[in-house]
C-alpha cells in the first residue's frame, strides 16, 4: 500500500481520525518530524503563528493533553487563552452553543476542545469559523493522541505498514483505542483489541480490528503493546470484580511482555495506574516509550496547528 502524502489538509478542523484520508495522516506525521528539532534549540520558539489566538476549552479534566497543546501553541508564538470546566461559566449552566458564541466575540483562530460529550467538537466546528481541534470528545475520538502514538511507532520502526499493534484495557470507554484503530488500519497496520468482555463496546468488530478477551493471545508476537487505564469516571459500576483481579488477568507484566516480539514497544497514553493495568517494572522498563510519547505529542500538535493555519481547500476553492 503506497500512500501518497497529501499536500494540505482538506478541512478547516481536526475533529477525528475517521474523516482523514491516509495521505493527510502522513502529511501530519511527516510535518511533525521537523517540529521535534525545535525542542532541542536554545530558543524553543518560532514566530509562525504570531498574532493568532488559540482558545483551549477544556470541559473535562486533563493535565498532559492541555499542557502539551499549550506548549505547542507557545512554541509557535500563538496567544493562548485557557478555559477549564471548573472556572468557566459552563458550570453555571451555559450551553456549548452559547459558550461558542461568546468565545467567537474574542475572534480566536483556533479552538482546542475537550468535552465529555461525543460529537461536541463536530458541533462547534459547524457553528464557528475558527479551526476546531478535538482534544478528546467523550468516548468518540482523541485524534492527536492517535497521531502522536503513530508518530512514536513510525520513528521507532520506520513505518507503520505491517506492524501488529495490541491495544488492551478499557476499550469500551476509550476514545484513544478508537482513534488509534482508525489510524493504524488506514496506514496498513494490524490492530488487536483486548479487553474483558464487559469492557468491549458493542459492535467492536466493525472497527476493523482483531478482538480478544484474553490478554496473552493478543500480545503474542506484537510489535507494540499499548495499555489503557480503566475509566472509572465513565462507568456507574465496575465492570470487573476488583483491581487486584484485573491486574491478575489483564495487566501487562514482565512475563506477559515476553510473549510479544523481542523488539516490542510498550506504550500508554496516560494517566497510568501502576499495579492495575501495567506493572511498574514494565512502565519504567527498557521497552517503554511512554515519556517519548509525551515529547512527540508536542511536535504532533505543532504540526497540526501549523497545517491548519495554512487554511483549507474548501475555503481556497470558494
Amino acid at each position: 500500500m503506497a500512500v501518497e502524502t497529501a499536500k494540505a489538509l482538506s478541512g478547516k478542523d481536526l475533529v477525528g481520525i475517521a474523516p482523514l484520508e491516509p495521505g493527510e495522516i502522513r502529511l501530519i506525521l511527516e510535518t511533525a518530524e521537523q517540529f521535534l528539532e525545535i525542542a532541542r534549540r536554545p530558543i524553543k520558539k518560532v514566530p509562525t503563528l504570531r498574532g493568532l489566538t488559540v482558545v483551549n476549552l477544556f470541559m473535562e479534566p486533563s493535565t498532559r493533553t492541555r499542557f502539551s497543546f499549550e506548549v505547542a501553541e507557545k512554541r509557535l508564538s500563538a496567544d493562548t487563552l485557557n478555559f477549564s470546566a471548573s472556572t468557566s461559566s459552563v458550570t453555571k449552566g451555559e450551553t456549548l452553543v452559547d459558550t461558542a458564541r461568546n468565545l467567537m466575540a474574542m475572534a480566536p483562530d483556533f479552538i482546542v476542545i475537550r468535552h465529555s460529550r461525543s460529537g461536541a467538537p463536530h458541533r462547534l466546528a459547524k457553528l464557528v469559523p475558527a479551526s476546531i481541534v478535538n482534544a478528546g470528545d467523550g468516548i468518540n475520538e482523541h485524534p492527536t493522541q492517535a497521531l502522536l502514538d503513530a508518530f512514536t511507532m513510525m520513528r521507532r520502526f520506520g513505518g507503520l505498514e505491517g506492524l501488529t499493534v495490541t491495544i488492551a484495557g478499557d476499550i469500551r470507554h476509550s476514545r484513544v483505542a478508537r482513534s488509534n484503530t482508525f489510524l493504524l488500519t488506514k496506514l496498513g497496520a494490524k490492530v488487536r483489541l483486548a479487553a474483558p468482555a464487559s469492557l468491549l463496546p458493542l459492535g467492536v468488530e466493525a472497527l476493523g480490528a482483531e478482538v480478544h478477551t484474553r490478554l496473552e493471545p493478543a500480545i503474542e508476537g506484537a510489535d507494540v503493546v499499548m495499555m489503557l487505564r480503566i475509566q472509572q469516571e465513565r462507568q456507574d459500576r465496575l465492570n470487573f470484580p476488583t483491581q487486584r483481579e484485573y491486574y491478575d488477568f489483564f495487566a501487562l507484566t514482565p512475563e506477559r511482555l515476553e510473549l510479544a516480539a523481542p523488539h516490542a514497544l510498550v506504550m500508554h497514553p496516560g494517566p497510568m495506574n501502576r499495579g492495575v493495568e501495567i506493572d511498574s517494572s514494565v512502565a519504567d522498563g527498557p521497552r517503554s516509550v511512554i515519556l517519548e510519547q509525551v515529547t512527540n505529542g508536542v511536535a504532533i500538535r505543532m504540526a497540526i496547528l501549523y497545517l491548519l493555519a495554512g487554511g483549507h481547500r474548501e475555503a481556497a476553492d470558494s
Binding site: 499536500k7 521537523q34 509562525t48 501549523y306 493555519a309 495554512g310 487554511g311 481547500r313 481556497a316
Partner: peptide
Amino acid sequence: LDITLYRDDVGPWRPAHQQPVLKRTS
C-alpha cells in the same frame, strides 16, 4: 536551515491554502 517557520508569507493571511513542506534544520 529551513526558514519556512520564519517566512513573512506563511499563515492564514496568505492567499494560498497550502503550507510549505518543512525541511530539515540541522
